[in-house]
Structure formats: structure tokens, C-alpha cells
């Protein structure tokens, strides 16, 4: 499998007052194109931090992260924002939809940053919502949707720009078992049918089973490579 993400000697230290908290300790990972990787570990192990660094929403203390041969740790804020908009799709534990926007408008948000015209945006949003099975809920507001449906809207928002990589932070953490299964099936489908590279942080071993590889972190160290 051709590597799409290469993490080399990655360290992350947070400073609180005069104390230094080492969150990630010399991490090295390679993620193949089209891979479905699960990151597991107890709370505070650094898995979300690692995910954030790979997604370019946080900066490492040292080390490199290359995505498709480009070292994103050298980017400034503005370049990183542009890079994220075209390369990364995000799925959060608590969906993080904008409550005053409809499902359609939430999914359209990333497309507002592109040069697509209104008609093209409509076409993309409708396709994305149909993929997640919400073609009939486009004009619904988040509060009119169930948790599972909200997460599906969030997934549609993550894939609407056709990014290289989808990162998901505990995507089933706030859902009941049935909804969680639906979401995992959807992510699996995106990986297998649409060839998306997925990195998912999870506590749930059932969720991790859907991944093609699972990495465990403990106190900032990569402890095994199953």
C-alpha cells in the first residue's frame, strides 16, 4: 500500500505555567493510502493530540508529518487552513453542526471556500447527503435530527469536498449502539467503496474492529502495532 501519511519523530509537549506535560513521545507511523486506521488508548494517552497533529489543527513541538510528500509542519496558519480545506474531512464526537444552519447548509459550508458556483455546490451537497442516506432531510435543522442523523450530516460535511483523508475523533462516542453501528458501516463504506483513508480515534473495541489496523497509545508512546 502506497504511504499517504508519514509521521517521523513526533513530539508534543504542552506547557502549563512552568510545568511541561509531554503528550506524545517520539511517534513514528506510516499510514497507507486507502487504509482505515484506528487509534486506541486510555484517556490522556495522546490519541486525539496525534489525530489533531495529523489533521493539521495543532502543531508539534518537534518532528515531521508528511502528507502525500508534503511536510505540513512547515505551514503557517493560513496555508494550513487552505490545506485542511482541500485534504482533510473531520468527524467529531459531538457532531459540531452549526445549529442555525440546515443539514444542507452545514454540508455546504466547506464548499463555500471553493470556487464552485451555486449550482455545482447544490449538486455536491445533494450527492453527499444521499451517500449518507439523508437525501430527504436536507432542509432539517440539527435539532430536528437524531444523534445518528446529525453524525451522518457531519460525515457528509467531511466528505463533500472529496478529501484525501477523513479523521474521526470518537465518532460513535455519543451514540446508541444502533446508531453507532450505522455510522461505522458508513465509514467502512467510505473506506472501501470510495477509497478514503480514514484515521479514527476510539475507545470502543467494536468500533476498532472495523479498522484495517489498530494502533495503541499509552502515555504518549506507541505501545504496539497490531
Amino acid at each position: 500500500m502506497k504511504p499517504i501519511i508519514e509521521v517521523q519523530n513526533l513530539n508534543k509537549v504542552y506547557k502549563k505555567s512552568e510545568n511541561e506535560i509531554k503528550v506524545l513521545n517520539n511517534i513514528n507511523i506510516t499510514v497507507g493510502e486507502g487504509e482505515f486506521l484506528a487509534l486506541m488508548g486510555p484517556s490522556g494517552s495522546g490519541k486525539t493530540t496525534l489525530l489533531n497533529l495529523i489533521a493539521g489543527i495543532d502543531k508539534p513541538t518537534s518532528g515531521n508529518i508528511e502528507v502525500k510528500g508534503v511536510d505540513i509542519t512547515t505551514f503557517g496558519e493560513s496555508a494550513l487552513a487552505k490545506w485542511r480545506s482541500s485534504n482533510i474531512g473531520f468527524v467529531f464526537q459531538f457532531y459540531n453542526l452549526i445549529p442555525v444552519l440546515t443539514a444542507f447548509e452545514n454540508v455546504e459550508l466547506p464548499l463555500l471556500l471553493t470556487k464552485l458556483n451555486r449550482a455545482q455546490r447544490v449538486k455536491h451537497v445533494e450527492s453527499a447527503l444521499k451517500v449518507v442516506g439523508l437525501g430527504d432531510r436536507m432542509s432539517h435543522y440539527p435539532k430536528q435530527l437524531s444523534g445518528g442523523q446529525e453524525q451522518r450530516v457531519a460525515i457528509a460535511r467531511a466528505v463533500v469536498t472529496d478529501p484525501l483523508i477523513i479523521v474521526a475523533d470518537e465518532p460513535t462516542g455519543d451514540l446508541d449502539r444502533n446508531s453507532a453501528t450505522e455510522i461505522l458501516t458508513l465509514l467502512e463504506r467510505l473506506n472501501k467503496e470510495f477509497k478514503k483513508t480514514i484515521i479514527m480515534v476510539t475507545h470502543d473495541p467494536h468500533a476498532a474492529e472495523r479498522a484495517s489496523r489498530v494502533l495503541h497509545l499509552e502515555k504518549g508512546d506507541l505501545v504496539d502495532n497490531l
Partner: peptide, 16 residues
């Protein structure tokens, strides 16, 4: 505050 983080994550620049 959280929503602004979501927008920034999606790729909204400081200008936008």
C-alpha cells in the same frame, strides 16, 4: 467559541 474552531478546522481562514 467552539463553532469558530469548527469553521477553522473546516478551513475558514482568518479573513473569512
Amino acid at each position: 467559541t467552539k463553532e469558530y474552531s469548527v469553521l477553522k478546522t473546516i478551513g475558514f481562514s482568518a479573513k473569512q
